[in-house]
C-alpha cells in the first residue's frame, strides 16, 4: 500500500474559530438553519436553501461519500521524497460538499461513491484538521 501524506498546519481566524473549537472536540460542525433545519457548509453565513441568516452550529454524522480525488506526487529529484498527498472532495451525508484530503487509503483503491468517514489530525502547531478515510469494511459501491 502506498503511504500518503497527512494534512499541513492551519490556524484559526475569527470566521473559523467556532469550527476549530468543534474539531478540537472531535466534531465536524455544519451550520443548520433554525427555521427549516437545512444543513449548510461550515462557512455558510446564510442558508443556501431558504436564505435564513439564523444558522447554528450542529455536529455532522462525520460520514459521507467520495466525490473526487487527486494524487499530488512529489517533485522528482529529491533524495527522500515525501509521500503523495490526496486532496479530495467529499459529499457529507447531510448534503454539503467539503474540499479536503483522503488519508489512510491506497489511492489506487479509491472510487467515486466510496463511503468515507472523518478523522481529525493535529499537525504540530496546528488546529485539529478534519480529513477523511474509507469506512472500514465497506466495499465501494
Amino acid at each position: 500500500m502506498t503511504a500518503v501524506a497527512g494534512p499541513g498546519p492551519v490556524a484559526r481566524n475569527e470566521d473559523s474559530a467556532a469550527f476549530f473549537d468543534g474539531t478540537a472536540a472531535g466534531r465536524f460542525l455544519l451550520r443548520r438553519c433554525r427555521p427549516a433545519g437545512h444543513w449548510n457548509r461550515p462557512q455558510a453565513v446564510r442558508c443556501a436553501q431558504c436564505d435564513s441568516p439564523d444558522l447554528r452550529p450542529e455536529p455532522a454524522a462525520g460520514t459521507g461519500r467520495l466525490v473526487s480525488w487527486v494524487v499530488v506526487h512529489p517533485r522528482p529529484g529529491a533524495d527522500d521524497p515525501p509521500p503523495p498527498a490526496v486532496p479530495a472532495i467529499v459529499e457529507l451525508d447531510e448534503g454539503p460538499w467539503w474540499w479536503t484530503m483522503m488519508v489512510g487509503a491506497d489511492p489506487a483503491g479509491l472510487r467515486a461513491g466510496l463511503p468515507v468517514q472523518v478523522v481529525f489530525e493535529r499537525p504540530e502547531g496546528s488546529e485539529a484538521v478534519p480529513v477523511w478515510t474509507p469506512v472500514r469494511g465497506q466495499p465501494p459501491t
Binding site: 494534512p7 492551519v10 499530488v72 474540499w99 484530503m101 484538521v129
Partner: peptide, 25 residues
Amino acid sequence: SPPAGWGGLLAAAGVRGPNTMYALA
C-alpha cells in the same frame, strides 16, 4: 505562520492551486 481559516484548511489539505482543483474536476 500556518495559513488561517477556510482558505488555510484548503491549503492544509493540499488544495494549493489550479492544478489540483482542475484535476479534481
